[in-house]
Computed example of a mutant assay.
Amino acid sequence: MYIIALMGNVTILFIVKTEPSLHEPMYYFLCMLAVIDLVLVTSILPKLLSIFWFNSREIDFSACLTQLYVIHSFFMVESGIFVAMALDRYVAICHPLRHSTILTNPVVAKLGLAMLLRGGIIVLPYLLLARQWPYCRTNIIPHTHCKHIAVVSLACADTRASSYYGLFVLFFATGLDVVFIALSYTQILRAIFKLPSKDARLKTFGTCGTHLCAMLAFYIPRLFSSLASRFGENMPLYFHILSADMYLLLPPTLNPIIYGVKTKQIWDRLLRLFSLCRGNFSPGAVALRQS
């Protein structure tokens, strides 16, 4: 999964960079998504693999808090980018004539920067609260990475402030993102059903379906893992560990596949790239260069 995530997201970035026809807001947001996925998957996978391969089960407390901050802040950034992508699709479908004037390159850059700052600020109390608790219990985290609630549960103090703030972020910040996305796609679906041609409706719905699949793969495992860690006391420990790993591993692995296969422009460019590579390494091409 790590190899697929690395190769897939790097391929998306390469294709968008080298294809001038893809220099549009939707693909800029897709590149931001690819970078975030690379950060998320790289923040946990090297340590996770070292646990299994080399039995390296220790992590410095400061490094643990850094990993905690990176994971949760970039998760919030990715959630914000999905909101921006939903906004882009709303403008493109509901106000197509104004799309190029509303979502200009500076606006896209400002949206990306705003989502980055939002993620860093919202998650900062996680770090500040976790640093202030006294830790005098076991120092064993029952996860393969420093998940917020797993670290806080080691403290020998009343950590309800951390737990309540975590629920606030889950239901208010992330929940608000889901509400904005749902409102955008409600308007998009209304606009799609008003299109006169069936082919146009199918084509437009296919583009939106790609985004919806990526969003479901992102939000559902995260929501399930967060609720299970707080209210699933009777669930087996391995189930908690697996669910916590999956919500970080699935989106970076699936997103390049979803967008690469379902987005025609990227798929066509990818096929041309493979054809070019195949032609360059064909026996005829080698013989021609040798002659």
Results as ranks from 00 to 15, higher is better:
223 L>G: 09
2 Y>I: 02
139 N>F: 15
239 F>A: 12
59 I>S: 06
184 S>L: 04
286 V>I: 15
247 Y>S: 01
81 I>E: 02
17 K>D: 11
196 P>V: 00
213 C>Y: 09
7 M>Y: 09
41 V>I: 14
236 P>D: 00
5 A>P: 02
44 I>P: 06
21 S>I: 13
64 C>G: 09
157 A>Q: 08
42 T>V: 01
99 H>M: 06
174 T>H: 10
181 I>C: 03
57 R>N: 15
234 N>E: 09
132 Q>S: 15
211 H>W: 10
160 R>L: 12
236 P>G: 00
121 I>T: 11
169 V>L: 05
275 S>P: 10
266 I>F: 03
163 S>P: 01
198 K>Q: 13
31 C>K: 01
89 R>P: 02
289 R>Y: 12
134 P>V: 11
285 A>K: 11
31 C>D: 00
280 N>F: 14
257 I>M: 05
258 I>T: 02
107 V>P: 02
4 I>M: 06
58 E>H: 13
33 L>S: 07
267 W>A: 11
198 K>C: 08
280 N>L: 15
278 R>A: 15
208 C>M: 03
158 D>H: 07
133 W>S: 07
134 P>R: 05
174 T>Q: 13
187 Q>P: 05
273 L>D: 09
146 C>S: 13
94 C>K: 08
282 S>I: 06
74 F>N: 11
15 I>Y: 06
211 H>K: 07
202 L>E: 07
151 V>E: 05
182 A>C: 08
154 L>I: 05
156 C>L: 04
15 I>N: 06
23 H>A: 09
244 A>V: 04
193 F>N: 13
207 T>K: 13
238 Y>W: 15
180 F>H: 09
118 R>E: 15
32 M>C: 10
230 R>L: 13
16 V>R: 01
270 L>K: 04
173 A>W: 12
149 I>D: 10
86 A>S: 14
52 F>C: 11
229 S>W: 08
160 R>W: 12
173 A>H: 12
137 R>H: 14
62 S>Q: 12
223 L>W: 10
